[in-house]
């Protein structure tokens, strides 16, 4: 977990950051990254059955080859306009949890997936401190040559669905 950023004078949020490979994706023109160890697969947009009485960022549930999993709309979760579905829209299926039996599998709707990037501690930038609570979901900012990637702590994002996840996560 050592990121070599101790010398940085700014207090930063980087609880969930581990150097490694990240899957980058677009969400309302911003580019985000999720640690690919959490990514189970990427599927095209499918029919979503709305799930009543759940927070509005939960779009509903889908049938993932015989298993029902909840699907969340990251745009809405982060207070942006709900995702518009295009034929680039897809669902990034992530697994959260320690072992196969207790994993919590969730689909995240994103505008489009871009590429897999290696991000190490040198790229990682301090997250500016904001009053916005959503800052808690960010593991760090990765400064690339021409752009900035927002690294998500997907475990925290999903823990809003089931607080028990944080307890069992690694």
């Amino acid at each position: 977990m050592s990121t070599g950023l101790q010398q940085s004078p700014v207090a930063i949020t980087q609880k969930g950051f581990t150097a490694g490979k990240f899957l980058s994706f677009q969400l309302s023109k911003e580019e985000y990254g999720i640690a690919i160890l959490r990514v189970r697969e990427i599927i095209g947009m499918v029919d979503v059955t709305p799930l009543p009485r759940t927070p509005d960022f939960v779009r509903g549930v889908i049938n993932l080859r015989g298993r029902i999993i909840p699907v969340i709309d990251l745009s809405r979760k982060f207070g942006m306009a709900p995702a518009e579905f295009t034929n680039e829209t897809c669902v990034v299926v992530v697994d959260v949890g320690k072992d196969i039996d207790t994993t919590f599998r969730v689909g995240c709707i994103v505008d489009t997936v871009s590429e897999v990037l290696t991000i190490n501690a040198d790229h990682c930038e301090a997250t500016p401190r904001c009053a916005n609570a959503a800052g808690d979901y960010i593991a760090g900012l990765a400064k690339l040559k021409d752009r900035v990637l927002i690294l998500l702590d997907i475990e925290r994002v999903i823990s809003d669905l089931d607080p028990a996840i944080l307890g069992q996560g690694n």
Binding site: L51, V58, R105, V106, L161, A164
Partner: peptide
């Protein structure tokens, strides 16, 4: 696939013949 307390009134889902839930 959700923590169950969140969805009162539902006991689960079923996959229908058209593949939807």
């Amino acid at each position: 696939g959700m923590s169950r307390d969140r969805v009162a009134g539902l006991s689960g889902g079923a996959i229908m013949t058209d593949g939807r839930v």
